[in-house]
């Protein structure tokens, strides 16, 4: 049952693509999450409202629906805009970009909540002390807030990361050759769907298990200055 009939390298390529999609989405999610969290703790009602709208809407919609909306909707949008800019040919939207943007956008909302909690967990007096020393807002963020919020953010961040990796399986539905789609193709050719999907499942388990150990290491590193029992 566990001969892959020469499809091993193809699945491996798919695994690499899955990791690429995951990391690229994570990058976008972290940017959006940081922006969203800072907006949520800011003094501006408009920023807070926007950030709250963002996180609430994302919680209400399944990731697959959002991805299909971005993929098919983006296609229509691009082809409506392109003639105005002078292109006449039909443009296919890149599923990698659609997938990464959607996943990044969704997990940006979860990261917003994680980072917001972490910001609030940092002792306010320390920030005030920073301002009292004449530090600028940017410097207070870089020297005081950020180094301390990492510790509080890591558990939630790790949780989001592992859900994110599993969500990348959805990009196979919009036609990106990640490991799930590679497995589907191999399954179709060899008539061994179970074998190939089990291989993919094991790959996901490997990624999450390695992530757990890495995150534990990071958590220990960032809590060096904290006494625990």
């Amino acid at each position: 049952m566990f001969s892959l009939h020469g499809y091993g390298p193809s699945i491996f390529e798919g695994t690499i693509l899955t990791l690429e999609v995951s990391l690229a989405s994570l990058f976008i999610a972290m940017l959006l999450g940081m922006g969203g969290a800072l907006a949520k703790v800011s003094h501006s009602i408009v920023l807070r409202g926007l950030a709250t709208l963002y996180t609430t809407v994302i919680r209400g919609i399944p990731d697959l629906v959002l991805m299909l909306l971005v993929f098919f909707g983006g296609q229509v949008l691009v082809n409506q805009l392109a003639p105005m800019l002078g292109y006449d040919e039909y443009i296919d939207i890149n599923p990698f970009i659609a997938g990464v943007l959607t996943i990044g956008f969704i997990f940006g909302a979860y990261m917003t909540e994680t980072f917001r909690g972490a910001i609030l967990a940092v002792n306010k007096g320390q920030l005030e002390a920073g301002y009292a020393y004449g530090m600028s807002r940017v410097m207070v963020f870089r020297r005081i807030l950020f180094p301390q919020m990492v510790r509080h953010a890591l558990p939630g961040f790790g949780n989001n990361w592992m859900v994110l990796v599993k969500t990348t399986a959805l990009v196979s539905i919009i036609g990106l050759d990640d490991m799930v789609r590679k497995a589907s193709m191999a399954a179709g050719a060899t008539r061994m769907p179970f074998t190939f999907y089990v291989v993919v499942a094991i790959n996901f388990l490997l990624i999450t298990t390695v992530s757990i150990y890495l995150l534990k290491y990071l958590e220990n590193r960032y809590s060096l200055g904290v006494r625990r029992n």
């Binding site: 599993k166 399986a169 959805l170 589907s184 179970f194 999907y197 499942a201 388990l205």
Partner: peptide, 23 residues
């Protein structure tokens, strides 16, 4: 628990719907 929490729901569904027919 480890298997079902560590793998995507999509892959689980494919395993059941397409996979079991292999046997």
């Amino acid at each position: 628990v480890y298997f079902f929490r560590g793998t995507p729901l999509l892959v689980q569904m494919f395993l059941v719907y397409y996979g079991l027919g292999q046997f």
